[in-house]
Design a protein around this nucleic acid. Sequence first.
RNA 1: GCGCCCGUAGCUCAACCGGAUAGAGCACCGGAUUUCUAAUCCGGAUGUUGCAGGUUCGAGUCCUGCCGGGCGCGCCA
Length: 594
Amino acid sequence: MPARQDRSELSMKQIVATLVNDALARLTDFADAAADLSIETTVERTRDPDHGDFTTNIAMRLAKPTRKNPREIAAGIIAALDDSKLIEKIEIAGPGFINFYLSAAAFHAELRTIVSDGEKYGRAKPKDSPKILLEFISANPTGPLHVGHGRHAAYGATVGNLLEAAGYCVHREYYVNDAGRQMDILGASVWLRWLGSKGVEVPFPENGYRGAYIRDIAEDIDTENLVTPTADDVLRDLPADAPESDKEIYIDALVARAKALQGEDGFDHIRQQALDSIRDDIEDDLTEFGVTFDTWFSEQSLTKTGRIDDALTLLEKRGLLYKKDGATWFPASNFGDEKDRVVVRENGAKTYFASDIAYHFDKRERGFDYLIDILGADHHGYLARLRAGLGAMGYQGDDLEVQLVQFVTLYRNGEKMQMSTRSGEFDTLRELRAEVGNDAARFYYVMRSNNQHLDFDLDIAKSQSNDNPVFYIQYAHARIASVFRQLTEKSLGWDPSGSGAQLGQLREPQEKTLMTSLSRYPEVLELAANNRAPQHLVHYLRDLANDFHTYYNAHTFIVDDESLRNARLYLILATRTVIANGLHMLGVSAPNKM
RNA sequence: GCGCCCGUAGCUCAACCGGAUAGAGCACCGGAUUUCUAAUCCGGAUGUUGCAGGUUCGAGUCCUGCCGGGCGCGCCA
């Protein structure tokens, strides 16, 4: 059989899978059976080195449809495989696994790819489609981000990085809920604090935003052209607040009073300044956290350009709206949702869902083919209705994917911390970052699966010890940097060409282990991206750092034998590259000194 | 009551499309440093994968029922 060309742009796994697929394509019996049953070749890393480097169970999976013995099928596949200098040997094992043992040359080639690709190593070739819109955090601009939003930020940013590494074009977006009633409540809250600072004492409403930041905003805003009403002006004829009466009715009345006393423009002036202040604070906070967006999409922009009405009009034209009990309903249950939803309330106000339909429609209209929303676990019911909305607007509901992020619990001194605003304990992302640092925070937030509750232990996140996987990984990187500094201090040079003869010096078991781990990196990136699961990368980096530390303790790199020294330095340079790439993917720094 | 997520070692968690003997870290015990950073390494124990069935060559993984935890089920945002 003809030897095939090496394919350095493929991951090792893809190289093996390609060999198997080519062989299958030649064996028509199996090819047809595999195609009929859409059995894809599954090539996996082995868990046990005794089973070689890669394995496939394809023979077992073909056994039933072809009614043949899996080991015979395996033998047939092996006979049909192209020769490759990257494969050392192939064995049939157990019930019909085909085990591949890769040659040293295969690993050496991978090392060279790592060093030559540098920070690009592990990244897939760019794909033209789909264009992905990734929306995450989208916390309401009514106060600073809290620790739960931090998880959304870290998770969303990392998933974005992973998808880009997988070759997708990713657009990151933050949806700013800057329209509607809650903005009025925010404005009223600031307004009352401003009045308070002018000596106009009005009881603060149950349903207002009480945080200290509201007072800060009230201090800072421009109120030059506003007249100051009296407390009596404010309170005259207002209904009672909770607990005597309904706090919702009260706050709405208060908002109406604020608008009456200050004028729509005056109140809007306050509300908009409050919004800008909070939004800017959120953006600063996230930027410091290494989380940035391509667009901050304003809900107000949807309202002002009439796109919500346009969307409703479109639904109306399609006969997909109906009236009941004075409200306007969208028959979401016709599109897979469990019940129909109101889009315009009896009082004429459009619901959130109406904006959501228009917003997601707008995402598709802007040319994004695939939408990913990262939402809090309490929003799990949204997927069905959002898909229903997209379906009604003429798009495939399947084009929307929702990833849910479960809640975060903070622990200090082994104690669960209460995160209510009223408790004295901190709960903002900014405070968390100040306490544990950005690196530890970014790392801890994505260490666990997004759909698993997260216990965030502040003491471990801060500890500079082997308890802490962030430092463990960073330390491996710093150690390698230190080795190269030592090399300079000793005035020793090294040949960075990594020529074949030199890499042949890598014969120690720790070196084989390290090379194997390094070669897995592109596969781990792909896995993590496909599953939106950064924790795979976290675990991988931990394992890789362990392989390096083990090697470090077992062998000296700066040895007298120049050929061996060059080979070892080449290997740890590749290790440094992969660790740095992986950490950057997580938004964590790769320090040269610790 | 209905829906979604989760249940794996003492603790916190992995386990890629169903694969070979279910793995890490922490904690605990013992050992390694005249050496490139000991924030390191090496060795040592632990499992009815919540329970009960089912599907099949093979199940932590898929299906059904049950138990336990979280979240949701508005003309709220």
